[in-house]
């Protein structure tokens, strides 16, 4: 498997961020993909039986929403910032606003502050309507160097 550096470069050259998502085993396992809409990254998590957390409601597992928000934030940093290694998550805070239904979920992220070492990102996840977010997150990522 080629390195992340090459993958990020290939993603930029091809203009297709989906190539990066498919390189991350955990994103594939959950079913998280990524696409471009009006030049902006959108994370997509199609409904699947294995991402359910509460079968009685039914509702998606909170962990899958956190994973979608974190992944979308990472893809957005890789796409918007000239960062060629994977940003490292320092921390992420997820607020669960509504129970997520067994349908497709989408997410988008915005960089609120780009520092030399740290980037602060906000992300929002929604299902049928963008006006009714199911979860939001704020995260800090380390852009390079060691912990």
């Amino acid at each position: 498997m080629s390195g992340m550096h090459e993958r990020v470069q290939a993603m930029r050259e091809s203009g297709d961020p989906a190539r990066l998502a498919s390189a991350i085993p955990y994103a594939k396992f959950v079913g998280i993909g990524v696409r471009l809409e009006e030049e902006r990254i959108v994370g997509v998590m199609p409904f699947a039986d294995h991402i359910v957390g509460n079968p009685a409601l039914p509702a998606l597992h909170g962990g899958t929403l956190g994973s979608l928000l974190e992944s979308t934030a990472i893809f957005t940093v890789l796409w918007d910032v000239q960062s060629e290694s994977l940003p490292k998550t320092i921390n992420i805070t997820i607020d669960y606003l509504r129970s997520a239904r067994p349908v497709d979920t989408f997410a988008q992220a915005v960089i609120t502050k780009l520092g030399r070492r740290v980037v602060n990102v906000r992300a929002v996840a929604w299902q049928q309507s963008r006006d009714k977010p199911v979860a939001v997150a704020t995260a800090n990522f380390l852009l390079k160097s060691e912990f």
Binding site: I24, Y26, A27, T64, S71, L86, T89, I94
Partner: peptide, 14 residues
């Protein structure tokens, strides 16, 4: 991260 085999943060937060 397929380069180093480190588990995804999302798995740990789940």
């Amino acid at each position: 991260n397929p380069e180093n085999g480190v588990m995804h943060g999302g798995a740990i937060s789940s």
